Amino acid sequence: MTNPVEPPEPVGRSVPGRPGRKLGPIAPSVGSAHRAWLEPLRDTYLTSGLTLTDLSGRVKFAKSKLSELLRGVGLYPRWETVLRLAEALDMPNWPLYRLWRQAAFEAHKSSEWIERNVQRPTLTTTHTAPPLDHRAFHELVEGDYLLYAQVFLNDDERDAAVANTLDILWLCWNDALSSHDTRRFAWNVLRATVMTRTPHLDGRPQLGCAAFDTVALRSLTSQPDRLQQITESLELFQAISRLPDHQLDVMVLRRLCGFTTEKVSALLGTSLATVRSDERHATRFLESVLCPPPTEGTTP
């Protein structure tokens, strides 16, 4: 079992030209939790029009060290430096702090190390409320996002993935609002966050968590029937994992979460026609895998 490749950095936005050396990419060794706050921070810097010299003057930190931080190189950064960058770039510090704290544990930092980083009065992190439209969006989609994530992750990982998704969206909410479709932008963030936590086999996500919590399975009381249903579910989920990403999402939402076509369209930010087409093509593929036609020369 292997881990998935980290999601690519967001594309599609023009980056203003700036003098000096171009900022290098995020280091491949950066983990998913670290990347969750680093990518929005980098994106905000890259679209700000500031140079590293400008940023260095604002945060009173060496350019070489800023470059390392923005590429995820070297030691895990202290909250003081991240907070100064957030203030210089006018980013909300509360969701950034929560993501930074979680990534610190992933980097094997102790609770004592984290607390020492935030105890100084000058490093106070204010628990602020998100924008009203973000809060409304949060309330609208959180339950549905949890159901999708549950198919791939255990309860703790599911909750963390959805919480991270909503914090990342808070950090880049203006980008979400200015995108072609906010719902589609948000779904891409959710999917990338869930998939970085999902076990993968041969590059495809595993749906094992869903196999033991399906409606069909819960309705069975006979042990032989339950074992048969588990076997059939595992075969189905293995086949679903081979679908293209868009078709996989549609089938998970339609067949495992039980959402209507209209609900799926709203969650994904795609048209009804696209959802129906994806479901139709996915169904044909699954039927070909699970119920192949008899080979020539065999009797039915």
Rank of each mutant, 00 (worst) to 15 (best):
S178I: 04
A129K: 11
E139A: 14
G20Y: 06
D249G: 06
A33H: 06
V118S: 11
D155T: 14
G143Y: 04
C257V: 15
A273N: 15
T126F: 13
P7R: 08
E139P: 00
P10N: 03
S14I: 12
E6R: 14
P25Q: 07
Q150W: 07
I26Y: 05
V194L: 08
G24Q: 09
P95L: 11
T270H: 03
P244Y: 03
R35T: 04
D202P: 00
R42V: 13
E142D: 14
C257Q: 13
T283F: 02
A129I: 09
N188V: 03
L272V: 09
H246N: 10
P199R: 11
E287R: 12
W187F: 15
F259I: 05
A239R: 11
T274I: 03
R254Q: 09
Q102R: 14
D249R: 02
T122W: 07
E106I: 04
T196C: 14
L220Y: 01
P77C: 02
F237L: 15
Q119F: 01
L207M: 09
I230M: 12
P131T: 04
R204N: 06
A273F: 07
V252C: 13
K65G: 01
D43R: 09
H180G: 00
S29R: 12
P224E: 00
T274H: 05
A88H: 04
F212E: 13
R35L: 07
Y97F: 15
W37H: 05
P25K: 02
T261D: 13
T165C: 13
R183Y: 07
A103W: 02
V11Y: 07
L177W: 08
W173Y: 09
H127A: 11
D43Y: 04
A239I: 10
L236M: 06
T124C: 10
A160M: 05
S64P: 07
T221Q: 13
T47Q: 14
P7Y: 09
R218L: 13
V289T: 13
I114G: 01
L290K: 05
Q150D: 15
Q150I: 01
L268W: 06
K109R: 15
W100S: 10
S265E: 10
L38H: 08
E235K: 15
R242Q: 15
R276C: 10
A186W: 11
L286A: 12
E106P: 02
D175L: 12
R197P: 08
H34G: 01
